[in-house]
């Protein structure tokens, strides 16, 4: 359960990070502005994940936190890629 929560936190945090990147915003056809939610998410959710993982014993907690960063990031990257495709702008760069 802790692994799952950490994975979701990292996935959302990294999705927020991705949504703030100009290249991804262009691909997703998102306009300008300074969205607050993704900013807060990428700052707060990793700490939430760390807090949740801290309930495990060391060094399991650190390994789970770092491992879920990697897997959560892969999931977030996959979701963003699918979203780019779904919005019908497969770029050939």
């Amino acid at each position: 359960m802790i692994v799952l929560v950490s994975l979701v936190c990292w996935g959302l945090a990294l999705s927020g990070h991705g949504l703030l990147q100009p290249k991804i915003r262009r691909l997703l056809q998102i306009g300008g502005g300074r969205p607050v939610v993704p900013r807060v998410a990428r700052l707060v959710l990793p700490l939430v994940a760390l807090g949740v993982c801290a309930r495990l014993e060391m060094p399991l907690s650190i390994l789970v936190w770092v491992g879920t960063f990697s897997v959560g990031g892969l999931l977030a990257g996959g979701v963003l890629a699918v979203e780019v495709f779904r919005r019908g702008r497969p770029r050939r760069s």
């Binding site: 990294l14 999705s15 990070h17 991705g18 990147q21 991804i24 990257g77 497969p90 770029r91």
Partner: peptide, 16 residues
């Protein structure tokens, strides 16, 4: 490193 962390374009040209 940070800005392209999640930039994955599987439907772009093969090399990309």
């Amino acid at each position: 490193l940070a800005s392209d962390l999640l930039l994955f374009r599987p439907f772009a040209a093969p090399g990309r």
